[in-house]
Every structure is written in structure tokens, then in C-alpha cells.
Design a protein around this nucleic acid. Structure first.
Lengths: 195, 195
DNA sequence: TTCAGATACGGACTAATGGTCCGGTTATCT
DNA sequence: AGATAACCGGACCATTAGTCCGTATCTGAA
């Protein structure tokens, strides 16, 4: 039984999320946003911050969950091509493209999210596992039997934050090029067509 | 003109490399090998360590360079299928497979190597760029024109340390399965054949 | 409205760690 | 042997995630 949260706690939680969002969007690099910065930006003590989110990783994941809420809903229960009831091939392509776009729109946050903190890697994060499972299932439906799990990992590896950051940043790939490239890879994996 | 290194410096450098090698192989996680540990293990002061290698990343890269020396030579000037003069498709497959094997044989070191330290990502490391360029060129020879650079990144993303660690570690994939999976991916990218 | 106690606040404090500094030591060359 | 440049080592510094606990605040009941 979790009793309702106290109002000041809720207010502070919101303030922290807003401040962190702002800081990650602004900062030169996500690693340069310290928890002290976030606390100061939110006008809150550090203890409060850690009480609310547990750890740096917890804060980042909460923020990410907030940012990806619409996408998650669209995938879980929205209309095609993202939602259920879509042709599996098209759904895989749509989901990967949507993930790519979200990541490009939140570069620093995504980088922070995928930075391994302590011993926890990207692959242990519940969200990753959810998407991976979904893609695996879809790939299986498409006829890739035992390979589907590995292929799902490989598709997701193609949209990893640091790779995108490298391509978009220091190598100047446009969003259009990236989407086309990922689409081509998906096509290759799904249909085996050579482009 | 760099004058010859003093003998004690050379000795210490070797001791540090040996100690670091041992520690990374033994430790539970690469992040848990601190520079103090390495210095203590080598029976050397911290200043010496940093003088010799510049930074933690420098030490790790030096160690990696040592470990991959044979592979590098085989690729640069060895016999087929790794060396020059091989059919490009086969060479891509051979190189990726060799990289995979080296990474599996040095899991912790590879994890440490690919951990982003500060603002420097994997993609800025000279070794990555060398391999990437080589693969790009080979892919171009095989007929993948403008896509070759992106495809090379994607192939290399498939053998990233943390992914391999996840697959081999907490999910129990065997080396054989991993090699087969990567080989299948390469085949897909090269020939567009569907498995 | 008041009050009691559970809940949350906040910022000083801790621990861990990468990296720096410089007085003292040692190899090397003549 | 002696002069000198290179090197050593470990105390020291700065940064940062995370903890602790005395104090302030909210909330529900009387």
C-alpha cells in the first residue's frame, strides 16, 4: 500500500524533472550535468533529489520515460503503423524509425541514458528489454526463427546513442540520411534485399 | 627527436602493463580497476603511471594495442583471408570474425576500452577509425557505394563490447552461436541473402 | 482550529577516484 | 667520479555520486 505522495514532494519532483530536462538539453555534454547542478537548478536540496529518484540513473530513466510516453502509447495501443494489428514488417520499420527520431530529438538525454553507470549496461534496462522483446516477436512472426533475438539486438545497435551522435555530430549526417540508412538496414534484415 | 627511454622507465612501463592486464582479467568489472590499484599492483607510484600513459584511457589503449598487435599485422600484411589480396567479401567476413574473437577473449579489457571516458567516445578512437575506414573501403569495392560508410559502422556496432558481454554473459550465448550470428549478418549486408 | 506525528527537506559530510605537482632519486654520458 | 637531465613516488587536489540527520512542513483527526 503506497499512500499518496505529499504535495511538496510532488511539486519538487516536477521541478527536478523540469530542471534536469533543461540542463541536459543545454549542456555541452551530458556527463557535465552533475546532480548538484540539477538540484541547484530545481531550487531543491540534494537529499530531496536522491529521495525522489534514487540515483542519477533513476533520474535519467524517469526523464526518458516521460519523453517517450507518447511513443510507448502509440506502440502499445495506437493505430498503424506503430500500433498492434500492423503488418509485422512494416511495424518493425515504423518502430525503429520512431525510436531513431526520438533519439535524435533528445540527443543528450539519450546519451546520458545509454552511458553505462556502474555495472548496469544498456541491456539491463527494462525499457531496452521491452523493445527488444517486441522486436524479437515481430521478427519471429516474419519468419526469422531462432535468429530473431540476435537480429533484434543488431537492429537496436544501429540506433545507439553514441553512434547517432557521432554520425549526426562530428560527421554531419542529416536526419534524412540517417532515417534512410536505418530504413535500408531494416529492409535488408527483413527482406534480404540488396540495395 | 625523441631520445631513447631510460631503462627504469621502460621497466616500469612493462610492469604497469603486466599489472593492468592481470587486474582487468581478474576483476569483476573493468570499472572497478582503479588507477591506484594498477599502480599498487605494479609496485609503482601513481605519478609514474600517469607519466607513462597520460591517462586511464591511454593505459587501456596501450594494453589493447599490445593485445591486438598480431591481428593488426595479419590484416596489414598477412596472408589471406585477413591480409590484403583477399576477395573483399571474404576479407570483410574474416576481419569481423577475428575482431569478434579478440573481443570475446578480452572481454573486460574491451569493455574498458569502449567505455566512454569524458567526452571521448569509441568513435573518436584512432583504432576504431582505422578499422572503419578499412571496412568502408572493402564495402565500396564490393559495390556498396555511398552506403559503405554507414554499413561499416553498423557491422562494427554488432560487435560492440557491451552487447557481446550481454549476449555471452547474462544470456549464455556460446562463442559458436555468436560467430555464426555475426557471420550471418555480414552475409546479409554483403550479399543480401536471406537466411 | 489545533495538534501530533509521519513525511519530506536540505546541505554539510563521506568516500572514491582520476589526475597533478615537485622535492628527492637515479640512470647515463663524459 | 661528477654533472645533468630524466624519472620516481606519494601527498595533494578537484570533482562528484550518494548518505545522514536535525529541522521544517504537510495532513488527517479531534
Amino acid at each position: 500500500m503506497t499512500r499518496p505522495q505529499r504535495s511538496d514532494a510532488a511539486r519538487n519532483r516536477a521541478a527536478v524533472l523540469a530542471a534536469a530536462d533543461e540542463l541536459f538539453a543545454t549542456a555541452a555534454a551530458p556527463a557535465r550535468v552533475s546532480m548538484d547542478d540539477v538540484a541547484a537548478g530545481a531550487g531543491v536540496g540534494k537529499g530531496t533529489l536522491f529521495r525522489a529518484f534514487g540515483s542519477r540513473a533513476g533520474l535519467i530513466q524517469a526523464l526518458w520515460a516521460l519523453r517517450t510516453e507518447p511513443l510507448r502509447r502509440a506502440i502499445e495501443s495506437g493505430p498503424p503503423p506503430l500500433g498492434p494489428g500492423t503488418d509485422p514488417s512494416q511495424r518493425v520499420a515504423a518502430i525503429l524509425d520512431a525510436i531513431l527520431v526520438v533519439k535524435l530529438d533528445n540527443r543528450h538525454l539519450t546519451l546520458a541514458l545509454e552511458e553505462r553507470s556502474g555495472s548496469a549496461s544498456l541491456y539491463e534496462q527494462p525499457q531496452y528489454q521491452l523493445v527488444h522483446r517486441l522486436l524479437s516477436d515481430l521478427l519471429r512472426d516474419v519468419g526469422r526463427g531462432k535468429e530473431s533475438e540476435l537480429l533484434a539486438h543488431l537492429l537496436l545497435a544501429a540506433v545507439r546513442a553514441d553512434l547517432l551522435d557521432h554520425l549526426a555530430g562530428s560527421r554531419g549526417s542529416s536526419r534524412r540520411q540517417l532515417r534512410a540508412g536505418v530504413a535500408a538496414l531494416v529492409d535488408l534484415v527483413l527482406n534480404g534485399s540488396s540495395g
